Amino acid sequence: MDVHVRDLRYFVAVAEELSFTKAAVRLFIAQPSLSKQIRRLETVLRVALFDRDHRTVALTAAGAALLPQARQVIGQWEAAQRALADAAAAERRTLTVGFHTRIGRGLLPRVTAAMATALPQWRLLFRQIAWSDPTVGLDSGEVDVAVAWLPVPEGFPRKVVATEDRWVALPAGHRLATREAVPLSELAGEPFIALPRSAGPLREFWLGNDRSPAPARVVAEAETAEESLEAVGSGLGVALLSAGNAQIYQRDDIVCRPVTGLAPAELAVVWRAGEERHAVRVFVEACERCLCDGG
């Protein structure tokens, strides 16, 4: 059985963190899944890569020997991905932009116009990516650049272009729907619609768990913003969203109110480390001008 690059990424993360817990957070996956993948890699290689006990994790001699080779393979694969993306983009002159939620905010027409001026032979293609991929399609190479809500996994450079308060989407007729603003404490015990577990810290952020003294009570998961709001509209639960998205996703069966006691959300342009394509730089700069400077 062949070893996949993903398996090597998992191995390198554990080797660098010397902690399955920290590596799982860094990789945006569940710790049991990470442990299972490492055991699978050891089985395929027929060697132990880590010495483990209840408190410590250490590389074995075999693990120490594999580490520089694994880093080299990952680096070569990333270089190959960039070369392929460059060749494909240059051939079709298309920049694919990933997003989780509708971008709105007047950004698309302004950035499209800016790109048309700077790169008249290029076009933008926008692709919605499920919440289950916290890299918004960047890690898989599905997109060239993304407009995403933070946090995103480490290793992806980003430029914050907008900061918005977090609001809560409530079913019409909810007991809190008549409030002008909802304190975070009032949401304790409410049923929440969550992002998938694979979204990692992003899921926790949109549950308000970064500021709440107790974890939110999750009753369902949604892959997209549309799925989440459909669940809210049906009365299944509540969900957090940004102030701008509260306007973009208006529905008759949902009431949105600002939440006090939460830090604001940050919208950013995100790209792959080592990205050097001129088209990506032009897009990032256009987004920064259009949102940060109000167009």
Rank of each mutant, 00 (worst) to 15 (best):
M1R: 10
A79H: 06
D86I: 03
A243N: 14
G106H: 04
A279G: 11
D53V: 06
V232H: 06
G75V: 05
A79W: 03
I29D: 01
A279K: 05
A194C: 10
L241V: 02
L8Q: 03
I254M: 09
A177N: 12
E91K: 05
H54L: 13
R102N: 13
E154P: 09
G141F: 06
A222M: 05
G233D: 08
V168Y: 00
P264H: 11
E227Y: 02
A194D: 03
A169V: 00
W206C: 01
R127S: 15
S198H: 10
P151M: 13
L184E: 12
G295D: 09
W77T: 13
E288Y: 09
C290V: 12
Y10T: 00
W77I: 11
A286C: 07
L207D: 02
A13G: 04
V5Y: 11
L187C: 04
Q81Y: 06
R272D: 02
F50H: 12
W206Y: 15
Q121N: 15
A177M: 14
V152Q: 14
V259Q: 00
D139H: 15
R166W: 07
L195C: 09
L267I: 08
Q76S: 09
A87P: 03
A231K: 07
L8S: 02
E221W: 07
A169S: 02
P120N: 12
A85W: 04
E180T: 10
R272V: 11
L207G: 04
P191K: 04
L124C: 10
F50Q: 10
G106F: 03
L241E: 02
D210N: 09
A87Y: 03
V152D: 15
F11E: 02
G235R: 12
V284F: 10
Q72G: 05
L124W: 04
I129W: 14
G173K: 02
